[in-house]
Every structure is written in C-alpha cells, then in structure tokens.
C-alpha cells in the first residue's frame, strides 16, 4: 500500500504541482523567478561551493537523463569492463563533487551572518532535501556497485512506466531501501521545487547564445506614429 502511494501516486502529484505552480508563477508575473544569488554578499567561499555543486550536479543529472533515454545503448556501452569502470568512476566523481560543493554551500550559509540574513525557511528546507538526495545517491554508488547497468535495466523501465501512465510498482518493490529513499526524495524535491529558489534552473538563459547583442524596444508603433501628422 505504501509502495503504491510512494511510487505510483506521489510522482504524479509531485509532477502536477511542479508543472502547474511553475507555469502559474511564471505567467502570473515572473518577478520572483531569480537565482537569488548571494555572491554580492560573499564571494570567495561561494566559488568552491557553487562551482563544484553546479558542475557536479549537472553532470550527474545528465547521466540520469542519458540512462533514461538510451538504456539499451548504455548497457551495450557498459558491457566492456573498462568502459563500465570509466562510467562508474566518472559518475562517482561528479557525485562527490556535487556533495562536497553542497556541504560547502550549507556551511557558508550557516556560518556567515550576511548570508543568514538572506536565507529563508524554504532555503533551509530545500537544502536539506538536496543534501539527502546527493548523499543517498553517492551512498548508492558506493554500496550498490555498477549502478549504470542496473539503473538502465531495472529502474528505467519503472520510470518509463510512469511516463506512459501505467506505473509498474512491481519493478521497484525489490529495490534496496537506499534506492527507494533516493526515489521518494526526488519526488519530494520535484514537488517542492516551484516554491523555492530552485526555479532558477527552469529559466536557464540558453537563448543568450543566439540572441543579438543589443535589444531595442519601442513603446509605440513606429508605423502608426509616422502617419500622425
């Protein structure tokens, strides 16, 4: 019963909240969409924490997404032992990088009076969830080896079953508790995301790459003005 709630209902609830609240907040005036950067108040410690965390977590997320999109290819790739070893070590390295970065960021937030002044309860909450998520992820990588392979073969089918709206909780029933924690915590993060500063990752400024350098906006219709004499 609890499996049903945690692995078949919770994901949909979380995704529903994520999408609806994010869209509502974005289109209902997106004033609050900001990275809420605190670099202006403390710059030096932020470098190690922020850089390690962001690059680490982005690579780890990329790994998860690749495994989800191309499970067969990942398994084929990992069939040669040295390649599997490369996958495993790089995943663990980036995971550790994210963990170290996150710990540094938490320490910075806790120890600096200026940063505490701009810390909200929601910040503490999301940091806690992220800490659990990354720690459990690194824990899984250490305790349950060759995650790339069993993730692609055993967990991806479950995740895919969610996407085709036929959740197959039988696939997760036998998973170790650490993996279950990782999954449930991920859903919690997803659901809480639109209420936190984490929304900044939904508005990554990719369009910067192709937009023109300068932006000029007219407040009135230039053609119309021309006709007024």
């Amino acid at each position: 019963m609890s499996d049903l709630i945690l692995f078949a209902i919770l994901p949909y609830v979380a995704l529903g909240i994520e999408l609806s609240v994010s869209l509502y907040r974005y289109f209902g005036g997106s004033y609050k969409f900001s990275s809420l950067s605190s670099e202006f108040l403390e710059q030096k410690e932020l470098f190690w924490g922020s850089t390690a965390w962001h690059y680490g977590i982005l690579m780890v997320l990329l790994g998860h997404v690749l495994g989800f999109l191309f499970p067969k290819e990942v398994i084929a790739f990992g069939n040669v032992s040295w390649r599997l070893l490369v996958m495993e070590t790089s995943a663990l390295t980036f995971g550790l990088m994210a963990l170290v970065g996150l710990v540094l960021l938490v320490r910075r937030r806790a120890s600096r009076a200026r940063i505490r002044a701009v810390t909200t309860k929601m910040d503490v909450f999301i940091l806690l969830l992220l800490l659990i998520q990354v720690a459990s992820g690194v824990g899984i990588a250490v305790v349950h080896r060759w995650g790339a392979m069993w993730y692609a073969s055993a967990l991806v089918p479950y995740l895919r079953s969610l996407f085709i709206l036929e959740p197959n909780i039988g696939l997760v029933a036998g998973m170790p508790p650490l993996v279950k924690l990782h999954l449930v915590n991920a859903y919690l993060i997803l659901g809480i995301l639109p209420f936190t500063r984490l929304v900044h990752f939904l508005v990554l400024p990719i369009s910067y790459i192709w937009r023109s350098w300068q932006i000029v906006i007219w407040n009135y219709d230039r053609k119309k003005i021309r006709q007024v004499k």
Binding site: P205, S207, Y208, R211, Q214, I215, V216, I217, W218, N219
Partner: peptide, 8 residues
C-alpha cells in the same frame, strides 16, 4: 536573460 533593453 535579455532583461535589459534600450528604449527605441
């Protein structure tokens, strides 16, 4: 983000 602009 393209948030800054010059008014024409």
């Amino acid at each position: 983000s393209g948030a800054i602009y010059k008014r024409g």
